[in-house]
Amino acid sequence: MPTSASADHNELREALRALCAEFPAEYHRSQAAQGSYPAAFIDALTRDGWLAAMIPEEYGGSGLGLTEASIVMEEINRSGGNAGHCHGQMYNMGTLLRHGSDAQKRQYLPKIASGELRLQSMAVTEPTTGTDTTKLKTVAKKQGDKYIVNGQKVWISRIEHSDLMILLARTTPLSEVTRKSHGMSIFIVDLKQALGHGMQINPIKNMVGHETYEVFFDNLEIPAENLIGEEGKGFRYILDGLNAERTLIAAECIGDGYWFIEKARDYAGERVVFDRPIGQNQGVQFPLARAYVNIEAANLMRFEACRRFDAREECGAQANMAKLLAADASWEAGNACLQTHGGFGFAEEYDVERKFKETRLYQVAPISTNLILSYVGEHLLGLPRSF
């Protein structure tokens, strides 16, 4: 099935598809049923360098941009996998690459590129603040050559499959800053040192089997050299990572959308009812055609967001719009695919129900559709702030 970017990055796509073909639907279905982490698949992606796509060549990576990283995420989902198990390394990389010191890059990037270390987790969200990030309550107080961290985070993913974590904490009290976005800082946390030594985690069981946790900090000590960039500027730094995150999630949704449409197209062409393939009926054709159109449109916005990010241009609006368009389009495609399959869409062996649940997440995470609409209303249309 052609796409709006079918002529671009063909060699990249073909190589990814060959690797993903080694892990067929049965593999991902089994992992989802067991609620287990697809370690063999992630190891293969790491071994072949796909998760080091954005690391510069001087540090052992591929030196590619967000555009290529987004294609990696898209192809994983289009193959029937779930890039949510590994996408953190891609967007967390931007924070370290753009704002880390030379010493930090030399220390961490070669080991991340080789697979010796994994940077899969980012701790921002808190149970009482959600996306109202400037009011976060986790604090980091400097004492000599270290910071002491206390607080709580929630929905922090892949901790047990990561060696490093990006942490956002308040280093200056909210009452002492002139702007509420000031006074927050970013740190690299060595998880092996932190777990059981001031940091505790509890798993959160959830609908899509996504490995995510509550995190508790009780006098966790972080070396001062683990501060990324300047103290107090962490909120600005984290926005780079969030723009990358939203764009990569858009790519995953686009991969899901194509998977749903291709799956439904094939089934509709083979399933015969009343002596004709059901795909001959406009009631089946039209929902799939509309879903395809919307996936293609979202795809164009995804690539514009990537282009701007890679060119270091402002891309917040495009990243947010790409995420909204792609999440809506993949959900629409998922609904059409499930409806096309009828009762078989609910059977695990068809994989539709698994992918249906996975793509539903992105109406809510990593930012809800309504908050993106609020962003567009305020920042693009100039309407009064709604929250």
Rank of each mutant, 00 (worst) to 15 (best):
T172S: 06
K355T: 01
G88L: 03
S181N: 15
D256A: 13
A194G: 07
N335C: 15
L167P: 11
S374E: 12
R271I: 05
L174T: 08
Q143S: 14
S62D: 10
D163S: 05
D163M: 05
C306R: 04
E304Y: 01
E116S: 12
E176P: 02
V272G: 03
L239D: 01
F303G: 03
A18T: 15
Q318F: 10
V376C: 07
I278C: 02
C20L: 14
G342Q: 05
P287R: 01
R308S: 06
L16D: 07
K205L: 13
G209C: 01
L373T: 07
W331S: 11
A317V: 15
Q200R: 14
T129P: 11
D218Y: 09
I156W: 06
F260Y: 14
H28W: 15
I188C: 03
D43W: 04
K135H: 14
V284M: 05
I201D: 04
W259T: 05
G377M: 11
T171Y: 01
K146D: 01
Y237T: 08
Q339F: 14
E270C: 04
N77M: 07
S185G: 00
C20Q: 04
L242N: 14
A44G: 08
A319E: 08
A140L: 01
G316A: 13
H9W: 13
D256L: 14
D132M: 15
L239Y: 04
L300D: 08
N206Y: 00
D266R: 09
C306S: 10
V284P: 07
A289S: 03
G334Y: 10
R118N: 07
F187G: 00
L51R: 01
Q104T: 04
K111R: 12
A329G: 10
L242C: 12
